[in-house]
Design a protein around this nucleic acid. Sequence first.
DNA 1: TTTGGAAATGAATCATGTA
DNA 2: ATACATGATTCATTTCCAA
Lengths: 396, 396
Amino acid sequence: MKVVPKAEAVEAAPRLASRSSSRVARADAGTLPLDTILNGDCVAELSRLPARSVDLVFADPPYNLQLQGELKRPDESRVDAVDDEWDQFESFQAYDAFTRAWLLAVRRVLKPTGTLWVIGSYHNIFRVGSMLQDLDFWILNDIVWRKSNPMPNFRGRRFTNAHETLIWAAREPNARGYTFNYEAMKAANEDVQMRSDWLFPICSGGERLKDAEGNKLHPTQKPEALIARILLSASKPGDVVLDPFLGSGTTASVAKKLRRHFVGIERDPAYAEAARARVDATTPLPDAALVPAPSAREAPRVAFASLVERGLVTPGTLLTDARAQVKAMVRADGTLSLETAPGLGTVGSIHRAGAAAQGAGACNGWTYWHIETSEGLKPIDSLRAVVRSEMAMAAE
Amino acid sequence: MKVVPKAEAVEAAPRLASRSSSRVARADAGTLPLDTILNGDCVAELSRLPARSVDLVFADPPYNLQLQGELKRPDESRVDAVDDEWDQFESFQAYDAFTRAWLLAVRRVLKPTGTLWVIGSYHNIFRVGSMLQDLDFWILNDIVWRKSNPMPNFRGRRFTNAHETLIWAAREPNARGYTFNYEAMKAANEDVQMRSDWLFPICSGGERLKDAEGNKLHPTQKPEALIARILLSASKPGDVVLDPFLGSGTTASVAKKLRRHFVGIERDPAYAEAARARVDATTPLPDAALVPAPSAREAPRVAFASLVERGLVTPGTLLTDARAQVKAMVRADGTLSLETAPGLGTVGSIHRAGAAAQGAGACNGWTYWHIETSEGLKPIDSLRAVVRSEMAMAAE
DNA sequence: TTTGGAAATGAATCATGTA
DNA sequence: ATACATGATTCATTTCCAA
């Protein structure tokens, strides 16, 4: 293993300075300014904070998106991309140096039992994960935030980029005593263990902060539900939560709501001020309300292709309509190829193929197409029911 | 950006040696041994293969799991963990050197239009992703394989590790012409874009290869459905698929089934032999089940002028937008002349004229311009469809 | 006030063949 | 290598506006 500087010698327990309301202020040396938003560079501000004083760090660093030209939607409207100055780095080397600096600064302020969460996309998360390992952090999980409403891929050249990745890491290997509220997470997930893939909508609507002109205040505001799950899973009421890239203040606001202390660091004075106002407008939940409510399990969406993938339908099989007059062949990718006129040779989804066979604009392929079984012709919807029950079994 | 060795000079097109059945054999220098399983170290074997000869690489490298001690279930039964010799590395540095070596060897054999898939977990995927970026590969997507039936977390100290991560990358930035079967993926996903999160069960049951004692043959056998989606999305029938860590032969078997050529490399003679037997027992699907779904992007190009030449549109005809408000006259050379403001008098292609009429930067003239028919106003794209079907008839 | 359709929008590494 | 013309391409949600 790569040799890295070990944690500094044990220091005296730091003094904590709790304040009744959040303030934009400088940190006093040796005192942790609780429930405060610090305006400044995160490494500089972190270096002023006492060592081993923070229970949980949530970090949403710049992603180093390397956007080239501009992107337009099919309707010719322009996509408002993240092209801010703070997301520009000269090279991967420069990004790595930046990452190393703030991770080391974070490690110093973390308690030995503290843990770190970092969020990113494929542009930066591999750099962050490697650096965490190089610096001798210990990865506990990688977590996938599945977006229920991601931006589509407008040019049709890739898969829809529908998730971001979080890394949850302990301060060092063999760290003992970190917080994981296993039972709370299980209770919040229909009494089965919480998995490493989480489904949340992106931040929009009333939750999204707007500026005076009605434009989004911050380009990358995260949903409160995502941060809440992190705090509920890996911290306790009264713990200290630190965010070195506070932005619009989501972490601070959620921490206050969930009765955790917070320390936020933000470079941009305008963001810091907006975050302060946001936190001041936040009311902590009643103590009794901190138990998470069970989340509704998502209705499984089953694609016909998954029946093929699972071997329930073999490529080459002929499907027919209910009268066994229209025929279509199942292809390996889960599409159908019409074998009879009208539409002979048409290839498409079960719905498209059904519509083409009828000369209709739309069709529910699940009920239109039938498959020959030992018990006669049956709609393919009966196979979907099999997959759904298997998925339900797997979830229990 | 880090400077990396650029791709070698263009070489003569490699000779391909197709064999009727898979064989464990050595690669001849300069000849790609199609549908063959090579038994040896992947870097050594790759270096014997011709450069720029492979369309798609799927790699499932050692995960470098770093397990400490054995894990028991709540009932005290022992979890059969991956602790094989091939998964042991001295350090992250050693793992990085290994990763760098096989990635460079893979890059050499990839065609300029070829792409690479790598699967991993949080133990190794950050190392792999960083190295890909350092070596100037270009990440197209990261994909999450969500396991419908993951192994639970027995200790209750972390989230259930319920996913693995794949990286899909092009050989270099600005790579042109890589294969992505967008329409097929969309059709396979209920007619909405395929997302970056995929749900599949782990490989178990009859699909899981067993040894003579009935134990699992290979510790990390991947599900065929996962590999099938990769091949169906990013390759075409007849393409060459290479797997440098073939293991139990899933990639080769799925490639044969989907009528792609394969080259497999496996270090362990026992695995190589088992994979050979597995491939020999695999039957390719009928061609008809595999012909790529029609893609508008790959349809033959038809110039508007050719419609005029064929008499489908007469010079002097007035075309309009869908609302019949903007008008343009068809000229004998296949260009349009705008008859209404804005842009009155502008002459240019159907696309230029459409853009000018809308004051837009770009326009698809085929869908913008309409022509009066006995059945009402129709987009000129319907005339192009006529020409294309005539061309298809003539080709048969 | 209600309803239905149009418009807006979100961390995006988003084209290709021919000259 | 660069330049230019062709022409392919979007999902879930919220907000706005007209009827």
